[in-house]
Design a protein around this nucleic acid. Structure first.
Length: 272
DNA sequence: AAAGACACCTGTCCGC
DNA sequence: TGCGGACAGGTGTCTT
């Protein structure tokens, strides 16, 4: 479900409700996520701590305390809400972080591809985060970096930009959208894309992600922010999910292919 | 080292 | 109405 703009939207939604709040209880109803939720460790180390900050690294959310950080990933179907402690938990509400002010940070994740972990030291050094590529909206992500990174690589450009060791935060929706905006065919070999075209791609990725964050993310099915409201970027999608519809630039029909078991959408005329 | 297949899991939708 | 199959916003791991 969530790509980086949805995670950023979630971060912005929960931050004002939980920063400065003290954790009074951690309730785990189902620990069977992608990795087992470390229940005992969370209950001993997170309980009693004050949330000092909420950060995002790629699609991971970090809840910092003086004792360590919770590392949360929403996988394909996860969401975080801040609810009243009287609010009854539903079927897929697996983890509650209960605060002294009567609010609860609640993780829901039907498919359980997500993570809820604990790092005692700097979470950025945790094995789950240590080898991630640069943030697309920060310095260090530029055409020179991408071009050098792609040298001799024959993988398709779409899979290349979705590789979190190359750059974080470009998921299946925004990969198709960015390549459309940059005019690059998704099946181009990463290593044969010119520096000039990488320049266009970097600008496209930044523009698409920034616009999506601006609009509160993309709601295709069920994404909601921390208050339960959808994102509005779906109306700005040019190619994703638009198989057979006219390209907004040239009116030729949008095509759909499969790459690495994921759907890819593109315009065969605008993208070469 | 790099590329591709596969795994994890539930819900929904479509065709028969 | 039920059933089988495909599909869904992610990503670590295993095999070639």
């Amino acid at each position: 479900m969530p790509e980086m703009p949805e995670v950023e939207t979630t971060k912005r939604g929960i931050t004002p409700h939980i920063v400065g709040q003290r954790v009074t209880q951690v309730v785990v109803r189902n620990a069977a996520m992608r990795r087992p939720v470390p229940v005992a460790q969370l209950q001993s180390d997170l309980t009693g701590q004050v949330i000092e900050a909420v950060r995002r690294r790629g699609k991971y959310l970090l809840l910092d305390t003086k004792a360590g950080s919770a590392i949360i990933h929403l996988g394909m179907s996860g969401s975080l809400r801040v609810v009243d402690s009287a609010s009854p938990a539903e079927k897929h509400d697996h983890v509650d972080v209960v605060f002294g002010n009567g609010k609860v940070l609640r993780l829901r994740d039907p498919r359980r591809f997500g993570l809820f972990l604990w790092a005692q030291g700097d979470p950025l050094d945790d094995p789950w985060l240590a080898r991630l590529g640069p943030e697309p909206l920060e310095a260090g992500f530029d055409a020179t970096y991408l071009h050098r990174c792609a040298a001799k690589r024959r993988v398709a450009i779409k899979q290349f930009i979705m590789d979190s060791h190359v750059v974080v935060g470009v998921g299946n929706i925004y990969a198709s959208e960015s390549l459309f905006r940059a005019g690059i065919h998704p099946e181009c070999k990463a290593g044969s894309v010119s520096l000039a075209r990488y320049q266009r791609l970097v600008e496209a990725i930044r523009a698409v992600l920034e616009a999506a964050i601006e609009q509160g993310g993309t709601t295709l099915r069920d994404f909601t922010n921390a208050s339960g409201k959808p994102g509005y970027f779906a109306q700005s999608l040019n190619v994703y999910g638009r198989t057979g519809q006219p390209c907004p630039e040239c009116s030729r029909l949008i095509r759909q292919i499969k790459q690495a078991q994921r759907a890819t959408y593109y315009c065969g005329y605008c993208q070469r």
